[in-house]
């Protein structure tokens, strides 16, 4: 049993079978996390560096926890407070870290393609923990895992991805993954935040009316409005965005069926999701976070194998 790829740079490189192997392995790791001893010795002799050039709460903690539950040795690197601030290049930084004998690199960077660049230059296995507006593959995988856990299937599942599609790496990973496993995908939000090419590029539905999108879907994956990546005015105000595209409890209750609400976090409460929706019974936002650890354990486990000691 082996994945078809040596790195996890994006969902783009995975086959449907890879995705299934990862999700099934994650299921077993989720069980491990419910034992009295939540740790397995699988990666006892593996050293992993967490390279975070961009801010992160969930992903970093989740990766770190996953690594520790697998008994790997970990090093944490954050750009702030490192020599990156003195002008050291990415490749130099990584090569210096690798010369200390590191086996795997978990990396987040604000530039799209940064992990792909590294993969060409260094021998360690690289896991993309989010690169710019390109992909966030482990988020895509954990979203799929949570959808499958909650609804029991992925094939034929109707998923609406709502909000800031244009700046969202989570959307890119979600769309590609869901298409690969046979789910139906719709993106919804204001026209200024949905790229024009997206319908053709991925063969998905596009909807500009959030109520219609919610009526259609089984699962709504709501994305954060990424103000830090928007360098021009794409909608008039957050308040207006909330009125037109935000999801309120009243809107949710008025639907003809009960749908599942997801959000990759961090939530802008009162913008894309109202507080009472985020905390409602239909929301599985905290389960997503819980599943994140199991999914990341599966990815690390599957990418660590097959290397002989020399």
């Amino acid at each position: 049993m082996q994945l078809s790829t040596k790195h996890l740079l994006g969902i783009r490189d995975l086959t449907r079978r890879d995705i299934e192997i990862i999700l099934d392995t994650a299921l077993q790791f989720k069980q491990v996390l419910q034992r009295p001893v939540k740790k397995v010795p699988s990666l006892r002799d593996v050293t992993i560096v967490n390279l975070f050039y961009e801010n992160s709460t969930r992903t970093r903690i989740s990766f770190e926890l996953a690594e520790k539950r697998l008994s790997a040795d970990t090093i944490n690197f954050t750009a702030a407070g490192s020599s990156a601030a003195k002008g050291e290049t990415l490749l130099d930084t990584v090569n210096n870290i690798l010369s200390m004998k590191v086996d795997m690199v978990v990396m987040r960077h604000s530039a799209s393609g940064a992990p792909h660049f590294l993969a060409k230059h260094i021998p360690a296995a690289i896991i993309n923990a989010g690169d710019g507006i390109n992909e966030h593959p482990t988020q895509g995988l954990l979203d799929a895992f949570s959808m499958r856990e909650k609804t029991g299937r992925l094939e034929g599942l109707k998923v609406a991805i709502i909000g800031d599609i244009m700046h969202s790496r989570v959307a890119m990973s979600n769309i590609q993954l869901l298409k690969k496993v046979g789910a139906e995908v719709m993106v919804a939000g204001p026209p200024t935040l949905i790229p024009k090419y997206i319908q053709q590029a991925f063969d998905i539905r596009v909807e500009y009316n959030v109520r219609k999108a919610l009526e259609w879907c089984d699962v709504a994956n709501v994305l954060r409005i990424q103000l830090e990546r928007q360098n021009q005015v794409l909608f008039s105000s957050l308040r207006e965005y909330n009125l037109a595209y935000g999801i309120s409890k009243r809107l949710l209750d008025s639907l003809s069926k009960e749908i599942v609400i997801m959000h990759p976090g961090p939530i802008n409460r009162g913008v894309e999701l109202d507080s009472d929706v985020a905390d409602s019974k239909q929301s599985i936002i905290l389960q997503q976070v819980e599943n994140g650890v199991a999914v990341r354990m599966a990815v690390l486990y599957l990418l660590s194998g097959g290397r002989e000691l020399n």
């Binding site: 192997i21 099934d24 392995t25 699988s42 486990y301 599957l302 194998g305 097959g306 002989e308 000691l309």
Partner: peptide
């Protein structure tokens, strides 16, 4: 584990 991965 280093030699071969097994399906859990």
């Amino acid at each position: 584990i280093r030699k071969e991965l097994h399906v859990p």
